[in-house]
Design a protein around this nucleic acid. Structure first.
Length: 198
DNA sequence: CGACCGATCGTCT
DNA sequence: GACGATCGGTCGA
């Protein structure tokens, strides 16, 4: 994707458009990739579920305020690295959380990184799991998604409207009314999507 | 410096 | 469906 894809106002629309795109990592010379099948939008200052709600800006969330295409990875529950792509202008803290992938290339490396060697949909199901499988960590926070190491490709695949399901976001019950916002996008019936329900 | 909490996950019932 | 692991970040004292 080009910079202009990320440099737009509507983060919810971008989250939807990221479904079907391909996330590629080359860490330590190892290429892995997967098709994005679940995303969530985090809409900045006015979104109670966002780390930037109300203009909050801390060491952890600094990269959330980065230029369009900045990578924002932070640690959740002390052990999971959650991967986001930042959208909109610098200092406007919009981001899309990538929540699930369908593995394409480098499955054997994902298996090695996660220690899951049998057929197992959980290998890239959920934001914590997919980051581990793809070799992404907090070290990548602040990097550019238009780089050699981590980037997103479009191979032309498009999901039809009835293949996309919209739901509220996962794990944001503390966000009050904003927890109900329809900001989560999943590919219908895809076995790698992280939770059921609609 | 200490206390609290979380954009999760795997396990157990 | 419920629960505990686990620890960095954040905030208050």
């Amino acid at each position: 994707m080009k910079r202009s894809f990320y440099d737009r106002d509507d983060v919810v629309k971008i989250a939807r458009e990221l479904l079907g795109k391909i996330l590629v990592t080359k860490v330590n010379g190892v290429r892995s990739s997967g098709r994005i099948v679940e995303t969530e939008a985090y809409a900045g200052f006015k979104d109670r579920a966002s780390h930037a709600f109300g203009g909050r800006r801390t060491t952890r969330s600094e990269h959330l305020y980065g230029a369009p295409g900045t990578i924002y990875v932070y640690i959740c529950y002390g052990m999971y690295h959650l991967f986001n792509v930042i959208t909109n202008k610098k200092d406007i803290p919009h981001g899309v959380l990538i929540r699930a992938l369908e593995p394409l290339e480098g499955l054997e490396h994902m298996q090695k990184r996660t220690d899951k060697f049998s057929e197992d949909y959980t290998i890239t199901k959920g934001p914590g799991n997919l980051s581990r499988a793809m070799g992404m960590s907090k070290l990548h926070s602040g990097c550019d998604i238009l780089s050699e190491e981590i980037f997103i490709e479009d191979d032309g695949l498009r999901y039809k409207k009835n293949q996309i399901v919209v739901t509220k976001r996962i794990g944001v019950d503390g966000a009050g009314k904003d927890a109900e916002l329809p900001y989560r996008f999943i590919v219908r019936d895809n076995p790698y999507v992280s939770a059921k329900k609609s």
